[in-house]
């Protein structure tokens, strides 16, 4: 079987889906000959030509707005926004139009497009290249938000995103773009949007995370010998798989949630609210959050102060055990 990293797995998903469906077109900055700055679209312009793999002018609002128009006409555009910081000029198109057209037209028009974008820190780059802005999109009705943590999931989730009838923001955690190699089947498979993955079963503490932090959390768990941790990879941030979370919390009674995004109104806050609503009486300790601080992500020299790490996750697990009734 193929051993692929996330970059290669997404590339394979795009390649196979484009072969299957001639209405899929890719749009983005430097995605043609250059293959994208992370090489996710490598060789696709050679395979499918410039009419389907479109090197656009440098204009993110334009990329999304034009993709939206193409989707309205029945094409299946997959737009790449080069870095998460560059999503911001496209927010007007995404939040005011892409997410709303189904409701605005009462189903007459829909925008089943995919917006791919790298996310998070880990490449020691300049400002706007290490951010985690998922909350803006999770907060917006009409959008689905997907974030794989490994190559296998990346392929299966991408195919689901492409075939989804609604707009999907597909975040690719750049810290683990090439950090994990995994067996990825060549044949078609789908991973459903809205379903979390229990990475490791356990009985004492539920550890919930997503994206690049899954690797960090998984490694942290390897250092914990005397406590049984259940590790959940959300895979999808909108809609969140509440059922899997609640089932686990009812078993363990103790919860740690980890993400790289800032703390205030981060995904962890929403999960805590849902646990509060649906499993409050199962809780044996206050829920711990391991998140970024409520500050601008520092430039690379000091970024380690901001990012979550294995130690912080271990400390949080430690704390919920100590605080347990």
């Amino acid at each position: 079987m193929l051993q692929l990293n996330i970059v290669e797995a997404v590339n394979l998903a795009l390649k196979q889906e484009m072969k299957r469906d001639k209405e899929i077109v890719l749009l983005g900055e430097d995605i043609g000959e250059d293959g994208g700055v992370f090489r996710v679209t490598d060789n696709l312009s050679k395979l499918y030509g410039n009419e389907r793999v479109i090197d656009t002018p440098l204009a993110e609002s334009g990329i999304v707005g034009v993709s939206f128009g193409m989707a309205l006409a029945g094409l299946k555009p997959i737009a790449e926004i080069q870095f998460e910081g560059f999503l911001m000029p496209a927010l007007d198109q995404i939040i005011n139009h892409v997410s709303r057209i189904r409701n605005r037209s009462k189903g007459r028009y829909t925008a089943p497009l995919v917006i791919r974008c790298p996310i998070g820190g880990g490449i020691k780059a300049l400002e706007h290249h290490s951010d985690s802005p998922e909350t803006y999109f999770v907060h917006t009705p009409g959008l689905k938000v997907v974030i794989p943590s490994n190559p296998y999931d990346a392929k299966g989730l991408m195919i689901s995103a492409i075939r989804d009838p609604d707009p999907v923001i597909f975040f690719e955690p750049k810290k683990v773009y090439r950090a994990i190699k995994q067996e990825v089947p060549e044949k078609e498979y789908l991973i459903p949007i809205g379903k979390a993955n229990v990475v490791k079963e356990g009985g004492d503490v539920t550890l919930i995370t997503y994206g690049a932090a899954v690797k960090t959390a998984y490694e942290a768990v390897q250092h914990i010998s005397n406590i049984s941790v259940e590790l959940i990879d959300l895979r999808t941030l909108k809609p969140i798989d509440t059922e899997t979370i609640i089932k686990s919390v009812k078993k363990t009674g103790k919860v740690v949630i980890a993400h790289e995004a800032q703390k205030t109104l981060g995904v962890a806050a929403e999960i805590i609210a849902r646990i509060n609503e649906k499993a409050f009486y199962s809780l044996e300790a206050p829920i711990e959050r391991v998140t970024g601080y409520d500050i601008i992500v520092p430039y690379p020299k000091h970024e380690d102060y901001y990012f979550i790490n294995q130690q912080r996750i271990i400390n949080a697990v430690d704390k919920v055990m100590k605080n347990s009734i």
């Binding site: 914990i224 010998s225 005397n226 406590i227 294995q310 130690q311 271990i314 430690d318």
Partner: peptide, 9 residues
């Protein structure tokens, strides 16, 4: 003194 162990990164 940790309940769960420690880690040097």
């Amino acid at each position: 003194t940790s309940v769960v162990g420690e880690l040097e990164e």
